[in-house]
Design a protein around this nucleic acid. Sequence first.
DNA 1: ATTGACACCTAGGTGTTCTAGGCGTATATG
DNA 2: CATATACGCCTAGAACACCTAGGTGTCAAT
Lengths: 115, 115
Amino acid sequence: MTRPVTDDRSEFLKGTLDMLILKIVALGPIHGYAISQRIQQISRDFFQVQQGSLYPALHRLENRGWLGAEWRATDTGREAKFYSLTKKGRKQLEAEMANWERISDAVALILRTAE
Amino acid sequence: MTRPVTDDRSEFLKGTLDMLILKIVALGPIHGYAISQRIQQISRDFFQVQQGSLYPALHRLENRGWLGAEWRATDTGREAKFYSLTKKGRKQLEAEMANWERISDAVALILRTAE
DNA sequence: ATTGACACCTAGGTGTTCTAGGCGTATATG
DNA sequence: CATATACGCCTAGAACACCTAGGTGTCAAT
């Protein structure tokens, strides 16, 4: 049973996932599973990052040199892959945040155009 | 000559194009070429809608019943396809604007998280 | 005569996201 | 003890939007 085309209940992020991940990791080393929880929690359950989006994104960011990774144990004693922001990653985050600012300003300009 | 990967100068919109088009058309019947000019103009040259993005989007919106189309003459005497917003289109626009509001709020929540 | 703006269009490629699976461990619950 | 649930990682395939790069034709200006 396929959902109807008009059902757009999963209207999350679009190209902002990378930026959000970088921002969360910027708060301190953290593993993937926890990143998705933090994003969901801080956005008050608005963003729900699917694992099928999360892990490819993390690998993408790591490959681009924006994230570094290291296997460590969590507080509950399990092995997990902890990510941290590289210098390049911090620059990228700043660029993406500035860009987001400009995009949302431009969108606001258009949305508020009356007549 | 391929541009370097890190060159992200064309960091436009992402899934917002449909909404922006609907919003422009909501101001009154207008043809495709003029829509792209209006978007560029109102956004102060920030958004530059490529024709390869524009026309498929217009057909998409028309197929979904959000836009109606009619061939008419422009003020310069040329034939052009004028689009206007349908009732469904107006509802869709309202929904997308509300959604955009929630998305940008949620993004702002995360971006402003310190520590 | 040719260039550039106007005005429409499509095919093919790229990249991101979602769905839908799979693997393994630990902990709680029946 | 079984088994479900949370934790924590992963991938393949499909869908979809966007961009590049072409194409057509008209009209005005140089």
